[in-house]
């Protein structure tokens, strides 16, 4: 049986810079901070109710990162069969760190990059805790 992974799934919004921040934080986690433990998947596959994607959600741990209060990532994960183990909104980080305002959708700018770093570090720590808990089960 393949080892369980953590799927970090960002929302796919292209209307708000916060969604770009969520995606970049996802890539930072799955490609650089926790490449052996974490991966991502196309949220659109869940929208389309793809059986393979739904199975991955049910059989693994999931982190949903949403760019806005519509919570598309979290809701699409829930529709696939279970709630995500961790769910965050980029906007909540922006409220906590008002000095870090992403510039634009295509170019989040320096402050946006700092926000990406902050979110990805926090996420990586949370995922580590999740995995330790998961291993004890």
């Amino acid at each position: 049986m393949p080892e369980r992974k953590v799927y970090v799934i960002p929302c796919s919004g292209i209307g708000k810079a916060s969604a770009s921040v969520g995606r970049q934080a996802t890539y930072r986690v799955v490609e650089e901070l926790l490449p052996e433990k974490a991966d991502t998947m196309c949220l659109a596959l869940l929208t389309l109710e793809d059986p393979g994607a739904q199975e991955k959600v049910r059989e693994n741990w999931v982190v949903a990162i949403d760019g806005c209060a519509k919570d598309c990532a979290r809701k699409n994960v829930e529709a696939a069969g279970k709630p995500p183990e961790i769910a965050h909104r980029v906007q909540d980080y922006m409220k906590k760190h008002k000095n870090l305002k992403p510039q634009a959708v295509l170019d989040i700018g320096e402050e946006g990059k700092k926000l990406v770093e902050l979110i990805s570090q926090e996420l990586a720590e949370e995922i580590d805790v999740l995995l330790k808990g998961g291993e004890r089960k």
């Binding site: 929302c11 796919s12 659109a44 929208t47 598309c72």
Partner: peptide
Amino acid sequence: EKYRPGITVSLCLPLYLAGD
């Protein structure tokens, strides 16, 4: 933003399933 602003609207695909 650049080539056809004003007439192009982006739709968010996961919002379809999220019930929007």
